[in-house]
Measured scan of single mutants.
Amino acid sequence: MFKRLMMVALLVIAPLSAATAADQTNPYKLMDEAAQKTFDRLKNEQPQIRANPDYLRTIVDQELLPYVQVKYAGALVLGQYYKSATPAQREAYFAAFREYLKQAYGQALAMYHGQTYQIAPEQPLGDKTIVPIRVTIIDPNGRPPVRLDFQWRKNSQTGNWQAYDMIAEGVSMITTKQNEWGTLLRTKGIDGLTAQLKSISQQKITLEEKK
């Protein structure tokens, strides 16, 4: 169930391209415009997507990853294993993690069937560096609404905000991946996880038929 919630949630996290980005210092504006741009692209490019579902990787690479804190999220997933990894191991892992996100997020976007969304009203940021933004996803086919909290983090150097995690039903996506990959990290280390991520990233994206 959580895996499905995570995939549905990713439908609204794909941010804007650099040329049309919203105010990078306001995570609420980023979330709002990102959702609108993403849904528009999914709707307008269905012919290309249906002809070649792996085209979704391109959308992810162009529109999402430049505005997601990939390395920060990847380091959180590694936890204690990050500090013990060599620079070469980290570089290989982050490259594999990025390719994994292209496949995983692309597969999530393949679930698009006309969903709509509501974003919580903007709250004062103050001096906060981590801000959760509640998004409610509404399914046109009558499924119950899904309420999610996207975690946005302020870059201490640039002042810009980027998304790095999502919490559904009190469970963090980062925590879920830590639990899912924990045994592999304990037995085969970061190299074993890197190899698995490379394998997963090679899987073809498949479209979910409308139910």
Results as ranks from 00 to 15, higher is better:
residue 1 M to N: 00
residue 1 M to S: 00
residue 2 F to R: 01
residue 2 F to E: 00
residue 5 L to I: 06
residue 5 L to S: 02
residue 7 M to S: 02
residue 15 P to Q: 08
residue 17 S to K: 13
residue 18 A to P: 14
residue 22 A to Q: 15
residue 22 A to L: 09
residue 23 D to F: 13
residue 23 D to Y: 10
residue 24 Q to W: 13
residue 24 Q to R: 11
residue 25 T to M: 11
residue 30 L to W: 09
residue 32 D to K: 04
residue 35 A to L: 11
residue 36 Q to K: 07
residue 36 Q to H: 12
residue 36 Q to T: 13
residue 38 T to Q: 04
residue 40 D to Y: 10
residue 44 N to G: 12
residue 45 E to S: 14
residue 45 E to Y: 04
residue 48 Q to P: 13
residue 50 R to P: 08
residue 53 P to Y: 07
residue 55 Y to R: 13
residue 56 L to E: 08
residue 58 T to P: 10
residue 60 V to R: 00
residue 60 V to T: 14
residue 61 D to S: 09
residue 63 E to M: 02
residue 63 E to H: 02
residue 68 V to A: 03
residue 69 Q to K: 02
residue 76 L to C: 05
residue 76 L to Y: 04
residue 79 G to Q: 03
residue 80 Q to S: 09
residue 81 Y to A: 15
residue 87 P to I: 09
residue 90 R to Y: 03
residue 92 A to K: 09
residue 93 Y to N: 04
residue 93 Y to P: 00
residue 93 Y to T: 04
residue 95 A to M: 09
residue 98 R to W: 04
residue 103 Q to K: 08
residue 103 Q to Y: 04
residue 104 A to E: 03
residue 105 Y to C: 03
residue 108 A to F: 04
residue 108 A to K: 00
residue 108 A to G: 14
residue 109 L to K: 02
residue 109 L to F: 15
residue 110 A to M: 13
residue 110 A to L: 15
residue 110 A to T: 09
residue 110 A to W: 04
residue 114 G to D: 09
residue 114 G to M: 06
residue 114 G to W: 13
residue 117 Y to D: 04
residue 119 I to L: 10
residue 119 I to A: 08
residue 119 I to C: 07
residue 120 A to C: 08
residue 122 E to N: 14
residue 123 Q to A: 14
residue 124 P to Y: 06
residue 124 P to Q: 13
residue 125 L to G: 07
residue 127 D to C: 09
residue 128 K to C: 06
residue 128 K to T: 07
residue 129 T to R: 08
residue 131 V to Q: 10
residue 131 V to E: 06
residue 132 P to F: 05
residue 133 I to E: 03
residue 135 V to R: 00
residue 138 I to K: 07
residue 138 I to M: 09
residue 138 I to V: 10
residue 138 I to Q: 12
residue 139 D to G: 12
residue 139 D to T: 14
residue 140 P to F: 15
residue 141 N to S: 09
residue 145 P to R: 06
residue 146 V to H: 04
residue 149 D to M: 05
residue 151 Q to K: 06
residue 153 R to Y: 00
residue 155 N to W: 00
residue 155 N to I: 01
residue 159 G to N: 14
residue 161 W to M: 06
residue 162 Q to K: 09
residue 162 Q to D: 02
residue 163 A to V: 10
residue 164 Y to M: 07
residue 166 M to Y: 01
residue 168 A to C: 08
residue 169 E to P: 00
residue 169 E to I: 04
residue 169 E to S: 05
residue 170 G to Y: 04
residue 171 V to R: 00
residue 171 V to W: 03
residue 172 S to C: 05
residue 173 M to H: 06
residue 173 M to R: 00
residue 176 T to Y: 02
residue 179 N to C: 05
residue 182 G to F: 04
residue 186 R to S: 02
residue 187 T to P: 02
residue 188 K to F: 04
residue 188 K to P: 06
residue 190 I to M: 10
residue 191 D to I: 04
residue 192 G to R: 07
residue 195 A to F: 10
residue 196 Q to P: 05
residue 197 L to E: 05
residue 198 K to I: 11
residue 203 Q to K: 10
residue 206 T to R: 12
residue 206 T to M: 13
residue 207 L to G: 15
residue 209 E to T: 08
residue 210 K to W: 12
residue 210 K to P: 13
